[in-house]
Design a protein around this nucleic acid. Sequence first.
DNA 1: TCAATCTCCTAGCACTGCTAGCAACGCGGT
DNA 2: ACCGCGTTGCTAGCAGTGCTAGGAGATTGA
Lengths: 193, 193
Amino acid sequence: MSVQQRRERERARRHDLIVSAARELAEAEGWDAVTTRRLSEKIEYSQPVLYSHFSGKDAIAAAVALEGFAELADALASARTGAGAPREALARVFAAYAAFAYANPALYDAMFTLATDLPFAQPTTPAPLQAAFTQFYEVLAPLVGDREAGTFTEVAWSALHGLVTLERGGRLSVGRRDERLELLVEQFLIPLG
Amino acid sequence: MSVQQRRERERARRHDLIVSAARELAEAEGWDAVTTRRLSEKIEYSQPVLYSHFSGKDAIAAAVALEGFAELADALASARTGAGAPREALARVFAAYAAFAYANPALYDAMFTLATDLPFAQPTTPAPLQAAFTQFYEVLAPLVGDREAGTFTEVAWSALHGLVTLERGGRLSVGRRDERLELLVEQFLIPLG
DNA sequence: TCAATCTCCTAGCACTGCTAGCAACGCGGT
DNA sequence: ACCGCGTTGCTAGCAGTGCTAGGAGATTGA
């Protein structure tokens, strides 16, 4: 009884250990460096142990991604609640999103490039994903006007994601990061005059 | 003299053969299926031959990407020149961009996800990339208003890229593709009233 | 015809994700 | 306290990856 509980606790600890090890390794050297061997070395267990926790490497990346969505939702929430007027709230949330992406590049990769099979915009969508999306929805709601709110939210989020992605990939002219973000915010504020 | 010319011609043919084989294979089964062995089998040469043409697998993907940018520039150009008023031109160019991405998913991957070391927004940027960007610039120029034209172009392109990326990844609600594109276009048209 | 060059293939290296099979540990029942 | 048994986690190995060394074989010019 209590023995089994202790075991489950230890298993849960090791589960988290794997996820955080993968995340650290990815953030330090990129996802290419996250191999099952290096991971097993880092957690001080053999490789097969990984497969008793996750179905494979992709599942580990998905777990990291999920952690990322939870943190992103938190970051957006605190940016939103700390703001006053709708205009300011939007600017702050967008800035928080961009800052999150730049501060955790490997994590952002896991969320949007690696974990391709996380169910989005569906009934089975994990809570952290829904939470993050909701933050966008809430901050954009006052600005919707006569548009469809869900569509408007998706488009705004997409635009921000695109900006962050190309920025991080070195595909935009250097040194104009802030100007671009500001312009994007303005573009979504315009309808309010 | 003429012998050497023939050889160079044959080498060029084989170069193109590799690029088109990689593209076909990627489009048919995804980039994970594009291994040096399968590629060499497809072109009916041994693997080392690939390395006499390209420095490695990444370079092959970059060559495919370059081809993609050239085709994208063409598609955008014909969409733009076929249009009348600035509003219509923008809508048509955006639609052409999205259609290109959906029609050639693996090619789009090569352009924006795989080939991470293509120099963008720099003096050494390859001509096809500049051409594609120029199409955006030209179609957006009449809509710039008091914004900085280059920045405006980059932001608009980023937004469209983000929409396409999340759409393709199944991260947006299904069945609203056209509505989203339309809303994005409207969003960038608004300043003109 | 012969030597030289150049092209291209076979074989192999170090690595990847993942799995089979076994040894040893720790548990529950007597 | 002991012993059988189930569980845990290891070693070893498989098929496949990108890439390269070395040597055959064909093609060239003299």
